[in-house]
Design a protein around this nucleic acid. Sequence first.
DNA 1: CGGCGAACTGACGGGTCAGTCAGTAAGGTG
DNA 2: CACCTTACTGACTGACCCGTCAGTTCGCCG
Lengths: 198, 198
Amino acid sequence: MEKSKEHKPAVEKRRIQILEAACTVMGKQGIAATRVGDVAKYLGISTGLVHYHFDTKDELLAAAFRHAAEKELAALRLLVTTDGTPRELLNIVINNFFPASSFSSWRLWIEGWAVALRSESFQRTVMELDEAWVEVLADTLTDGVASGDFACVNPRDSAWRLACLIEGLAIQQVAHGGVINDVETRRLVADAVEAEIS
Amino acid sequence: MEKSKEHKPAVEKRRIQILEAACTVMGKQGIAATRVGDVAKYLGISTGLVHYHFDTKDELLAAAFRHAAEKELAALRLLVTTDGTPRELLNIVINNFFPASSFSSWRLWIEGWAVALRSESFQRTVMELDEAWVEVLADTLTDGVASGDFACVNPRDSAWRLACLIEGLAIQQVAHGGVINDVETRRLVADAVEAEIS
DNA sequence: CGGCGAACTGACGGGTCAGTCAGTAAGGTG
DNA sequence: CACCTTACTGACTGACCCGTCAGTTCGCCG
């Protein structure tokens, strides 16, 4: 009983409309606290219609989360197609990752990891996207090494280390507005980047 | 209407018993999926009794989470009181942090960060404990610098970077058993540690 | 025009679960 | 012993919310 019919544009449009609504609501209330009634109300439609397009709530939320993640990834990939020195590109990628630049997106990710502990489909999404994410960073580093700008021993390792560092810092900053603020985050990352590429 | 009376040992004992039961259940089912009925059933008591000791479910879960976190922190602090070279102590601390050594504990933390996004009390716990946690690492590094074993420019910065790196890696490993496995995690961390202290 | 099916509504069933409450058992105190 | 307080039970309630379904609207095609 597959609901997604690629061929019917009107249906697909509605599907996406519901997905984006779900993303907005999830961002506001959190994944766990998102009811299908909330999504429906946000669009001014009935809950029945939501279930007409998505069999279960879990399916809806998983699809919405993936939708949001893929949009972000596409934006990142677009960003690194610009011309520039490896250094400039690296800065662009790193900046895009930063907590401050996309607070609500990090909130979603943090919740996404937690949900992934119990949900098969969330786990897949989170895994694929995290890896694609790191790959962009790794490619940037590899390019810089090829051009002689960077001197990573192992660009892939460096990419994972930097990505995980930023993830950890994002948690510190987003989940609890603790000791680590935006300025400090930037300094810590900048130092780590320097250490990795030189 | 404060329920916790420090003076009555029998009551305090029951409180702790419920807290630990809640921890066990949370570890098994996840924080969000933990019902007060599950905790009661685990102990073979009534739900009424749980509410006799804790006004609300949120209060119970927050207290249980804090209880677990504080126990872990105490264990870590005990661990670093052993004698040894700064190098050995650092290894002990780092090892204790590792995902593989405490999988279920990391699962709880990941969920804890997500809950902290919405819950005042979880946020406090997570913030205090994360900081205490990094402080132990920072102290270890500082001692090593003082004795001339390590050469961190700024031990506090190094501690935050290492802690956040490990956090990020733990997510990669725990939330999705992705590309990053235990061996790779250890290598990535070991390299980062080396870079920080030399 | 007539009829068919896709998109959509809104009320409802059914299950879950936090928190309440009247009542019980047990232990201590005067 | 009579009384009171504390720890505890378990049935119950009221709210919430997912998913269903009978029925409605509307656009399209023959």
